Amino acid sequence: MKQFLSAFFLFIFSANLVAQDFFRENFDTGKTYILLANPTVRNLETVTFLIDNNLLNVNKRKTRFVGIYHEQQAYDFEASRRYVETRGLNRFYLHEIRGKLDTTKLYLENGYTAEMRNLFENSTGIFFFGGPDIPPAVYGEKNTRSVVTDPARHYFEITLLFHLLGSYRNNHFEPFLHKNPDYFVSGFCLGMQTMNVATGGTLIQDIPAEIYGAETPEATVQNGKMNMHRNYWQKISTDSLLMTINFHPIRFTEHPFFGESVKVAKTKKPLIYSSHHQAAEKIGKGLEVTAVSNDGKIVEALTHTTYPHVFAVQFHPEVPALYENQQQKKFHPDDTPQTYHELIGRQNVKFHKKYWRYISKTLKKAAR
């Protein structure tokens, strides 16, 4: 009986550690909390890898991570709760936003404003991760080439970023960061696109078709490897070793972000991990372009003109396979298989590590 009671109370204690109501309960206000939007198992694995390998360098004694999401999202976050619990990730928690998403009030104070303000006031920053296409209606366009699979996620993340940063779509709204300009906001791929849309920007719905006039994968590959932002050979060939992504160079604009903040030579054109078919078009309120594709046609990075710790990239510096040898893949059917770590090369890994050092430094400043 004693063993049963011990196991029961241990189960209850463990369940409380990963309860999906974190900011509704009594939490330790002496800790530093970083929010993770869309805390899927994969994203939790990624953040854990970055911390364990000292890429994301935070105060492990004091820093905690809280995954936030909306209950209507197309993902079973119970899997995330089980992952946190079974792996004993005692620095990770979950918080579920509940209620009906009103798409007519994404750029207004709405039923989530008070809860989002509570998240903001009790955290030092937030990461937004990659994912599927945003519904074009939220940036005032018809759906011509977007594949929308998780609208609730986009509605939640867009209204959250609107509340944080403001938008051309509501110039009268005072963004949360007005009260705390040092708050950290960053994103990767979809995360950057969401930041742009939330602040009043728009998107190119399909890069090959709208930028290069290529309507098929066969036409897209004729544009050359450097003009592909994901791998279209895998849509043509049945070779099981073909990667879905591409490595291509970016170049920095005249903006000082990469040169002065990240400390990368302006003349460098680092290879990056690219996996997208959409991109920022009209740029949102308060944002400036800091990097573009090699041909200058695609926005690869943004930063904020007012809030120093707000920036995002179109590429994926967070992918663990960049930093260690994992599966071997190839871009073209005739290529020799290599790991992503080998393909990107030592000098380009250094660029990504510098980017993470800057993120870590910025998070520490935001936490002061």
Rank of each mutant, 00 (worst) to 15 (best):
F4I: 13
F9S: 11
A15T: 12
A15S: 14
R24N: 15
R24A: 14
K31G: 03
Y33C: 00
N43Y: 12
L50M: 04
N54Y: 08
V58E: 00
K62P: 01
V66S: 03
I68H: 03
E71I: 07
Q72L: 11
Y75F: 15
Y83F: 15
E85M: 13
E85N: 12
L94N: 03
I97Y: 05
I97H: 06
L101T: 02
D102S: 13
K105I: 01
Y107P: 01
Y107W: 07
E109C: 10
L119V: 01
G125V: 00
I126S: 00
F127P: 01
P136I: 00
V138I: 15
Y139G: 02
G140R: 04
V147G: 05
A152C: 08
H154P: 01
Y155F: 14
I158R: 00
T159N: 11
T159V: 07
H163Q: 10
H163S: 04
H163F: 02
S167D: 05
R169M: 11
E174Y: 08
F188H: 07
L190D: 00
L190M: 12
T199M: 03
I204S: 00
G213V: 11
T220C: 08
V221T: 05
M228N: 04
W233K: 02
S237Q: 05
S237A: 10
F247L: 15
H248K: 10
S261G: 09
V262P: 02
T267A: 15
K268A: 14
P270Q: 09
L271V: 05
H277C: 01
Q278A: 05
T290N: 13
N294D: 14
D295E: 09
V299I: 15
A301P: 02
T305P: 02
T306E: 14
Y307L: 02
F315S: 02
P317M: 08
V319H: 03
E324D: 11
Q326R: 15
K329P: 00
K330H: 09
D334S: 14
Y340K: 10
V349W: 03
K354P: 07
K365D: 13
